[in-house]
Simulated scan of single mutants.
Amino acid sequence: MVIVLTRSEKSALVRFLGLYLGSSFILLTIIAWLFYKVESNLYYDLITSNMKNVAAKISSTIIYAQMTNQKISPEKIRENIEFDFALYDHSYKKLVGNIPEKIDFSKKIKQYDNSFILIDDSALGHLGVNYVVIKENIFYKKIYQLKEKILISFLLIFAFLFITGFYLAKMFIKPITNERLKLNNFIKDTTHELNTPITAILMCTSNGSSLSEKNIQRINLSAKRISEIYKDLIYLFLEEKKKETPSNLRIDLILNEQIEYFKTLASKKRVEIKTDIKQTTFFIDKESFIRLCNNLISNAIKYNKIGGEIDIILKDNKMIVKDTGIGINKQNLKDIFKRFYRANNVQGGFGIGLNIVYTICNEYDIKVDVDSKEKEGTTFILTFKE
């Protein structure tokens, strides 16, 4: 699903990615540098230790050769070591070996170009050899390979962090974007819902001062619709609104009043309202119960078919509102009480009516069940606890 972002959301996304990737880059750079220093020092210690061991071994071979009156073979020495070597006398003259550089004997280990040279004086002049010089050619190759590995690992990890950060940012911003889209749609739908009755009123009053009974009826219905929209918005969004104190109410009387209120609207669609209402008392505030009834009855009319029926039953601590309308898909039933949710865009509305019903039911511990079949109708069952 493509997420359409506003300029401010894009800016927030870029800032988040910049901060996330910038801090990740700095942290990875520090880790890579520390790893490089540790590994290069380890390589250096390992190679120089090897060189010292080889030099000591050659010196021992020279000393042993003199003690046993044997001669040393440079070729044989060369076969057994992985380094270049050379033997020098006390005047720093090379006796044998394959090291071409001019050696500085003032330091035990010295760097020459891309190599290290180690000088060992443990031969002590035996067979005329005072210095054993070892030259390695692998340290900088190892360092080059190490840098390659670190760079490749750095790029792979940073690419992974970039992709992860991008998807995390989209995941975090998606709920905000969805809520913005819902709010935008809500504003559009509210404007449309208000425009319809206002247009009807203007049309009815545009012909002068004389109004027919039919026009008066239309104005009355339109004004009632605007009033209902206003009351729903106030109930849902003004959380600090002043509410009536709950009390034990004859909800059957209130329900009958609201049914009379909706009969004119139902007659416009030739929808017949059938009732079976018994005396019932419930602890609730009047405005909340009116909102509960109005939204259920209004939906039953709005989503009903022309010439359909509505059954409203109140008895045995249950209120049932059943219609013969378009019904609700089973997959959508779990979402119908969400704010701004609309199962279809055919009949208008802006998706807050059933959310109000759900809010009131939660507040007064009323169990609400829904049964619906597409193209057959929907039944809402409210169970009031005694």
Rank of each mutant, 00 (worst) to 15 (best):
N178D: 11
S59Y: 01
E376M: 09
I216R: 07
T264V: 12
D276R: 12
N69K: 10
I198W: 12
Y44K: 13
S212A: 00
Y261W: 06
G307S: 08
T196P: 10
G353R: 03
Y144N: 11
N248L: 14
K263Q: 15
S247Q: 13
I62N: 05
N295G: 04
T205I: 09
L255A: 00
K76Q: 15
I99C: 08
F162G: 00
E363A: 05
S40K: 15
I31R: 05
S24T: 14
K71Q: 14
A123Q: 03
S288L: 00
G325F: 02
I134H: 04
Y235I: 01
V368T: 08
I306L: 13
E179S: 11
I58G: 02
F85W: 00
G349W: 02
A55E: 00
Q66A: 10
K367V: 08
I326V: 15
T264S: 13
A223V: 15
R291M: 15
E374A: 10
Y341L: 13
L21H: 00
I134K: 02
F186R: 02
D311Y: 10
D316Q: 15
K243E: 14
E363F: 01
I366F: 01
L87D: 06
P197V: 05
I229W: 08
D365M: 04
A169H: 03
L253R: 13
S60E: 09
R291F: 09
I119L: 15
I284A: 01
L168E: 04
Q217F: 11
G307N: 10
L124F: 10
F380Q: 01
S73A: 04
T383R: 13
Q279H: 08
R218D: 07
T383D: 11
E228H: 13
L46K: 12
S153R: 08
E309P: 04
E260M: 05
F166A: 06
N207G: 10
Q66S: 14
F337Y: 05
I251L: 03
V370R: 03
I273R: 01
I360H: 05
L161E: 07
G22F: 08
K373G: 04
I301Q: 04
N69Y: 04
G325R: 02
L155C: 08
F85D: 01
D104E: 14
K330I: 08
F166Y: 13
F162V: 00
N207D: 07
V133I: 03
R250M: 06
P100I: 07
E193A: 14
L314V: 06
E213I: 13
Q258F: 07
G18Q: 06
I284L: 00
I219D: 12
V271H: 07
I63G: 06
I134M: 06
E75P: 05
A32K: 00
S106Y: 04
K241T: 06
I157W: 07
F160A: 15
T280A: 01
V129G: 01
L27H: 08
Y358Q: 09
R225T: 09
N344I: 00
Y303A: 00
S206W: 03
F35E: 11
I297G: 03
S267I: 05
K142F: 06
S60L: 11
F35N: 13
I312L: 00
N317T: 02
I134F: 03
P175G: 09
F158L: 12
N207F: 09
